[in-house]
């Protein structure tokens, strides 16, 4: 899979799509593959504050429990409620319908520290090299 150029990426394998003052957040294709079949998603509530670099939720595969870290700071506007019954959507469409939450950004300048798609792909290549 190629990584969409309109998304910004973190070293922890989350992405954010910034549209105006709102960022949509999810995990990358690489992350969903590493996790395996996702069977449970725990997300914050609308109105909750999230902080860049800090855990905002939990994804569970059959085998493992993983924290997901917020790429941006802000207030949760919405979460992807469909994932409660269809957590496998994160595996099937990680950059699209498998999104996790929308955040009203507190500080747009933060996003300048995130990686562009090509930088993220290089980062993955380096991480995979033995």
């Amino acid at each position: 899979m190629s990584y969409p150029t309109e998304l910004l990426y973190t070293k922890d394998h989350e992405w954010v799509r910034v549209e105006g003052e709102v960022g949509t957040v999810g995990i990358t294709d690489y992350a969903q593959k590493e996790l395996g079949d996702i069977v449970f998603v725990e997300l914050p509530r609308p109105g909750d504050a999230v902080t860049a670099g800090e855990s905002f939720g939990t994804l569970e595969s059959v085998k493992a429990v993983s924290d997901v870290f917020a790429p941006v700071t802000g207030t949760v506007e919405a979460v992807n409620a469909k994932l409660q019954d269809q957590p496998e959507m994160v595996n099937a469409d990680p950059h699209g319908q498998g999104w996790l939450m929308r955040v009203r950004l507190a500080n747009r300048a933060e996003t300048e520290k995130l990686m562009l798609a090509d930088t993220y792909e290089t980062y993955l290549q380096e991480a995979k090299a033995p």
């Binding site: 395996g36 079949d37 069977v39 595969s61 059959v62 085998k63």
Partner: peptide
């Protein structure tokens, strides 16, 4: 740990 996925 797995090949195609634990569930499958």
């Amino acid at each position: 740990v797995g090949y195609s996925g634990i569930t499958e």
